[in-house]
Amino acid sequence: MHRVVIAILTATLLGACVHREVLVPSDRLSVVETNGVMPAPSREDLTAGDRPALIGPLDTIVVDVFNVPDLSRELQVDASGRIAMPLVGTLDARGKTASELGEAVEAALRGRYVRNPEVTVNIKSSVSQVVTVDGQVVEPGLYPVTNQMTLMRAIASAKGLSEFARQEDVVILRTVSGRKMAGLYNIAAIRRGAYDDPPIYANDMIVVGDSPERRLFRDVVSLAPLLAAPLIAVLQ
């Protein structure tokens, strides 16, 4: 009986072991030998593609009106996405880039109050440009989205995958033109360079799946000493 239990335990443990796949060169991936030196990235490689940061409700912005310090100030966008400034009135800031909002402030000031106004707007902090990371990560939660945010970076922001994460079952949920969309990704394949690390955008939701096999592996390992102890005693 005990031999049968040991055989089952062994088969389960072997089946649950993670096999590290060898990196294979392809048209998308160049593999450098361990004694080789990887080339340095070019300037273009270090620059993120154009992904405009949009202003949203409760974001904090800084408005600077050149040569008019009384109008320059730090503002918080209200819950409806609007800001209010002296001489300008109320403007809708939601969904605008910093430069677009600056142009709107200039248009409100031009002619009536300030001759040839020059306005600069900067986003100081954003609570609207966030991604939700949920499921089997160490610290699920909301994380700010930057120009260079990708799936792997978002998971790293959540302190990485948890013990029971299923690497081949990672879903990105996104709304595109009012339509809900879902993409299934394999973290292990991304790590191997099989395909690019996908970009992440504001309001995306990342859900990392659960691995029953990993849970079984932990349970078997914790039970193994208890099951093996009577057998050892009998053999002695």
Score class of each variant (00 low, 15 high):
Gln76Tyr: 00
Gln76Cys: 00
Met1Gly: 14
Val105Ser: 03
Val145Cys: 10
Arg174Gln: 03
Ile83Ser: 02
Ser177Cys: 08
Leu223Val: 06
Leu223Tyr: 03
Pro39Asp: 07
Glu74Thr: 07
Arg174Ser: 05
Ser211Lys: 01
Tyr201Glu: 07
Glu44Ala: 10
Ala84Lys: 09
Asp70His: 13
Leu227Phe: 10
Leu75Tyr: 04
Gly36Lys: 12
Gln76Gly: 06
Arg51His: 12
Glu118Lys: 07
Pro144Ala: 15
Gln76Trp: 02
Leu142Tyr: 05
Val207Ser: 10
Leu216Cys: 05
Ser126Pro: 00
Gly56Glu: 04
Asp219Pro: 15
Ala154Val: 15
Pro230Ala: 12
Ala224Gly: 01
Gly193Pro: 09
Val221Gln: 14
Met205Ile: 07
Tyr195Cys: 11
Thr132Arg: 12
Ala48Lys: 04
Gly178Tyr: 09
Asp219Ala: 15
Val176Gly: 01
Leu75Cys: 04
Val208Lys: 00
Ala84Gly: 11
Glu21Thr: 14
Pro52Ser: 04
Thr97Glu: 06
Asp59Gln: 14
Lys180Val: 10
Glu44Thr: 12
Leu231Ser: 15
Val176Thr: 03
Gly178Gln: 12
Val114Asn: 13
Val24Arg: 14
His2Ser: 15
Pro225Asp: 14
Tyr201Cys: 00
Leu235Ala: 06
Met152Ala: 06
Glu44Pro: 09
Asn116Ile: 10
Pro144Lys: 08
Asp64Pro: 02
Ala202Met: 05
Arg94Lys: 12
Met85Phe: 13
Ala53Gln: 02
Val171Ser: 00
Val65Leu: 13
Ala156Tyr: 05
Leu91Trp: 14
Met149Ser: 13
Gln129Cys: 12
Lys124Trp: 14
Tyr201His: 07
Gly49Thr: 14
Leu23Tyr: 09
Ile155Ser: 07
Glu100His: 08
Met149Lys: 08
Ile155Phe: 08
Ser30Pro: 01
Asn122Ala: 14
Ser128Ile: 02
Arg166Leu: 13
Ser42Tyr: 04
Lys180Leu: 15
Asn203Cys: 06
Val114Arg: 15
Arg166Pro: 04
Met205Ala: 12
Val22Asp: 09
Val121Ser: 08
Arg192Cys: 06
Leu87Cys: 04
Gln76Lys: 08
Val4Trp: 10
Val208Asn: 00
Leu226Cys: 12
Gly95Thr: 10
Ser211Met: 08
Val133Ala: 05
Gln129Phe: 04
Val88Glu: 06
Asp45Ala: 09
Gly160Tyr: 12
Gln148Glu: 06
Phe66Leu: 11
Pro52Gly: 06
Met149Pro: 10
Gly183Thr: 02
Val176Ala: 03
Met152Thr: 07
Glu103Leu: 14
Pro52Ala: 00
Ser162Lys: 14
Asp27His: 09
Ser72Arg: 02
Lys159Pro: 13
Pro199Tyr: 15
Ala188Thr: 11
Arg94Gln: 11
Val171Ala: 03
Val176Ser: 02
Val220Gly: 01
Ala107Pro: 07
Glu21Trp: 11
Ala202Thr: 15
Val145Asp: 09
Leu75Ala: 04
Val62Phe: 08
Ile232Gln: 14
Val130Lys: 11
Ser30Tyr: 03
Ala224Gln: 04
Glu100Ser: 10
Thr10Trp: 11
Leu9Arg: 05
Val131Thr: 03
Asp219Cys: 12
Ile8Phe: 05
Ala107Val: 08
Ala107Leu: 11
Arg112Asn: 13
Ser42Gln: 06
